[in-house]
Amino acid sequence: MSNTTQDLSLDPHGAHGHGAHDNPHLGEQFEDIAQQYDTYTVGMWAFIVQEVMFFGGVFAAYAIYRYKYLEAFSYAHLELDVFWGTVNTFVLLFSSFTMALGVRAAMLQARKAQIGFFLATILFACVFMGVKYVEYSAKFDHGLIPGHNFTLYTEHLNEVREKHPHVAEAVEKNPALVPQMELFFGFYFAMTGLHGLHVLIGIIVIGALVIRAWINKNKPLDYMPVEMVGLYWHLVDIVWIFLFPLLYLVGGH
């Protein structure tokens, strides 16, 4: 990515001409490509640090309630579908793999391979979102929408009884569990929603890189933004690596 700026390109002294900048992707504020690469890498990692803290806030809140309402959360998570969760984890791990190969292709200046791997990554990301759609609509149908339609454990308790009789029994004995279970689904939607938003952003950014690689056929590939987007995508994967067991698995089956 060339950071050539309007203001900086104005140089009456000629002390800062373009002679030093042989690489078209070298920003004006940098001395050489090594400095630029280091700077981009550290900058992206600093961004990842802030993403970790951003998700960390909601993970902390979730962890506290998991501790406080151990019983209710263990019951509530039974309504999540481990099968779809596993499929999505698989899909996302595989997309990380294709992303890593795409970055590698960009390092080797293999344009077609990069575009191919990135398109595969986008495909997997879309599958992920599709599965999320299936899951979310199932929650709508079952009355598991906190704040609006949370009726599974009150009006439709019989549905619960068929699959998990001990949950229905516990809820009948202690109705105070229901708002706590509602809280679980509040976290489920907040956390997966936030993660899904990151996947969507990822799709857009990766798509932009595909278009860029497609258009600039005659220029050498600009490798740096490719690696930075790769780092972002792996981060999205890591967040899911934690979300999946904490939401779908922990609490027994």
């Binding site: 990842i48 640090v49 970790v52 960390g56």
Partner: peptide, 10 residues
């Protein structure tokens, strides 16, 4: 260092 910093701070 950066890779560890966020997790450590959490």
């Amino acid at each position: 260092l950066w890779a560890g910093a966020g997790f450590f701070w959490l």
